[in-house]
Structure formats: structure tokens, C-alpha cells
């Protein structure tokens, strides 16, 4: 696999927005089991309603829900299992339930080079993904993930 991050070609790139109903993609109870959570709202709609929520909360949505693997690889050069994710940060607005319709969009926020501690150049690509409730346009989440690769040529 010799593809690298394509930081020179992707400044200001925005992938097309996608419409998602979380329950068609993700599973609150399976998520909760996988992290050992005892939060009953993930397991039961009744418990979620009793807690004042509109339904079971959706597990966090991510960039890979808005950009398919081929586009990620071909357009920006991120390859699962090879490209290192160097850090992440998220902000949250309203909570999306598994049955809400959300609009997600991913864009390249920054793409740059700088030397690492050993002096070799590294490429950084910051991908930001926003999800908003379709009905109200309220922000659900905005997440930034930084990919990093050593420059080899």
C-alpha cells in the first residue's frame, strides 16, 4: 500500500452531506455492552423515555458514517489500519436519538506539513464532521480528528 495522505490536493474539500437515521447504522444496546455501560437508556426505550429522553440515545456518529472507504482512500489518502489518528476532539449540542434523522457532513479543516521530533517531515490532515438534526438544524456534534503520517518522499 503506497498511497499517502494527499494534503496538497484537499484544502477546503467538503464531502457531500448525507442523511442518516442512526438506528439503520448503529445499535445503542450493542454499543453499551461493548463498553460495559450500565446506562439503561441505551438498552431500553422505556428507560430512555422515563429518563426524559425522546428515545434511546444514538452512539456517537463519526466521519466514517459520512464518507465511504473508497472516497476516503482515493480522495484524501486515509487508509484504515495504516493512517494514524493522532488526536480527537468533539463538541456536543442536542442529543440525537436512534430514530432522529440527522444530516452529516465531513470537510477538510486543515492539511499541512511540519517536522516531527526526529526531524523528519510529517503530514497532518484534520477532518471535521458535523451532524445536525434535519428537522431543526440544531448541532448534534462537531468532531475533529487529526490524521498523521511520516513523509517518505
Amino acid at each position: 500500500m503506497d498511497r499517502k495522505l494527499k494534503i496538497d490536493d484537499v484544502q477546503d474539500l467538503r464531502f457531500p452531506p448525507v442523511e442518516i437515521v442512526p438506528e439503520r447504522l448503529v445499535s445503542p444496546p450493542l454499543y453499551a455492552r461493548a463498553i460495559g455501560s450500565e446506562e439503561q437508556a441505551y438498552y431500553s426505550t422505556d428507560a430512555a423515555l422515563a429518563a426524559g429522553l425522546r428515545g434511546r440515545p444514538s452512539p456517537g456518529l463519526a466521519f466514517f458514517h459520512t464518507v465511504d472507504e473508497d472516497a476516503l482512500t482515493e480522495v484524501i489518502g486515509v487508509v484504515y489500519g495504516r493512517t494514524l489518528a493522532a488526536g480527537a476532539e468533539s463538541e456536543f449540542g442536542v442529543m440525537a436519538t436512534e430514530r432522529d434523522t440527522v444530516i452529516g457532513q465531513t470537510y477538510v479543516e486543515e492539511a499541512y506539513r511540519r517536522p516531527g521530533k526526529d526531524g523528519t517531515m510529517r503530514q497532518f490532515l484534520v477532518l471535521t464532521t458535523e451532524f445536525r438534526l434535519k428537522e431543526t438544524d440544531e448541532l448534534v456534534s462537531r468532531s475533529r480528528i487529526t490524521f498523521i503520517e511520516k513523509e517518505t518522499e
Binding site: 448503529v26 445499535s27 450493542l30 455492552r33 463519526a62 466514517f64 458514517h65 484504515y80 489500519g81
Partner: peptide, 10 residues
């Protein structure tokens, strides 16, 4: 389980 729950393609 986590990958299935979150539709993680990695």
C-alpha cells in the same frame, strides 16, 4: 461487538 454497534469499517 463495538465495530458492529458503531458501523466502524476499520
Amino acid at each position: 461487538r463495538f465495530s458492529a454497534a458503531t458501523a466502524d469499517p476499520n
